[in-house]
Amino acid sequence: MVTQETLNFLFSLLHKESGLALDDSKTYLIETRLDPIARQEGFPSINDLGRHMKQHPSQPLRQKVIDAMMTNETSFFRDVKPFELLKGVVIPDLLKANEKGRRIRIWTAGCSTGQEPYTISMLLCEMGPALRQWDIGILATDIADGALARAKAGIYSQYEVQRGLPVTYLTRFFNQRKTEWEIKQEVKRLVEFRRLNLLSGFSHLGIFDVIFCRNVLIYFDADTKVRIMEQFADILSSGGVFFLGGAETPFGITGKFTRIETEKGVCYKKNTIPMQP
């Protein structure tokens, strides 16, 4: 049983370092995510882990805890619709709009173990000839080092490549390595992985045509959500598109986006005239 003292310490640490706003109702998250870390590090309980972290604020252990709490569930083609919309509408529109510069920049914020950016990359590879002579870049960022390392390696278990991934994509874009599957170089080369804490600001990343930030902001507190979403709007190109998780919305948080509803799904565009949140 995790004590209130430990919970308060962890809640405050996670909020300060990563913006995660947890309360007592999320005790189960602390228990399920940190119990393996405590055991792995040789502590009898999460309380002992917390006590040790308080006395020795060492960075590696702190990062491990943040990694465990921030690593979100992900899968290839998660929720399908955003990818159908991306391939069927967003990219074709960008091919027209960016014809002059022949450049498309996509950011997946909170990329976890890489399935989301690689899904986007596979879709782009599939469009082949239409994108020849275009400069395409997918930036994939996450705060969790462990997840990023796995993402960069691009090696997935049999279970992971069966979650949401059509088998034709498996045969076309993966190489088998015994019981694991490695994403091919042609897919990897479009993606650049980088560690980024959304709390630290990201205007230096430049302007993006598409931003994916799905199911990342759900546990952030209201003020942090406002700050981050408004920054997303600032670095989205004028015709750019923003994707949130299915249960998320910018409404009530910021008036900088307009909801675009298509038969292939929902996305958001930047308002040219700011509205009330």
Partner: peptide
């Protein structure tokens, strides 16, 4: 991989490798 490719060439529409979960089947 060769088996998967073979089955698809012979007309299978999808492929599940055992063991699998309910989530995999649904997806």
């Amino acid at each position: 991989m060769e088996k998967i490719v073979q089955a698809l060439a012979k007309g299978a529409n999808e492929y599940i490798m055992k063991p699998f979960t309910r989530e995999i089947l649904i997806e």
